[in-house]
Amino acid sequence: MIRFDQVNKWFGAYQALVDINETIAEGEVVVVCGPSGSGKSTLIRTINRLEAIQSGTISINGEDIHPKGLDVNAFRSHIGFVFQQFNLFPHLSAIDNCTLAPMALKRLSPAVAREQALALLDRVGLAHKANAYPSELSGGQQQRVAIARALAMQPPIMLFDEPTSALDPEMVGEVLLVIRDLVRDGMTLVVVTHEMGFAREVAHRVLFMDQGRVLERATPDDFFNRPQHPRAQQFLSDIRTPFATA
């Protein structure tokens, strides 16, 4: 469903993505992991065109996402994106955060939009906080509202850029539960994360990246128990035993 064909991206002289060739099937859950600076965030951000690419093509459902004259806004409204820093709109309540886009873009009436938003907030366990402002919510609650907000546009694809990296440890679980819930609905998810337990339990496939390249792709079982690439082996070893000396 999502296809990368010889994709390369530079930030000035620095190459962030090198010869990316990947396909993500419909309904697949893919976890992208790797060390800092490996390009995993950049990769996911190219899918909804938050980042541009210099060569290669990205296509969704067989259609190139960079044709001339494409309505970028309509395109983006079909992809949900959840940020590491939540990025809720602080001047709007939780429910207003969720109704903003549907009302502005799909021309839903306020009543219908609110009804749908309330259902989504309920789904992430925050219906009782519908009228709260982001400043009154914990980090975990904010991220869950952010997920509801992204779901409000009913996108077939959801992208998560390190959704739990900015959370206090005790709130990570509540967010991961919500994401796992989406998996059960058969959505196509691409998740950049360090949460290995989550990856093992939920992902169909793991992509390991380092220095802009995808070095290994495998099922979670294969990846975590029998990593092939030396960098992947090093990475997993570093994660498991952070205090080991060389």
């Binding site: 938050l50 806004n73 409204s77 079909h78 940020f83 990025n87 886009a101 873009l105 992204a150 546009m153």
Partner: peptide
């Protein structure tokens, strides 16, 4: 803020 709004399709 700008990125999340544009990501929603605004």
């Amino acid at each position: 803020q700008f990125e999340s709004a544009r990501s929603l399709g605004l």
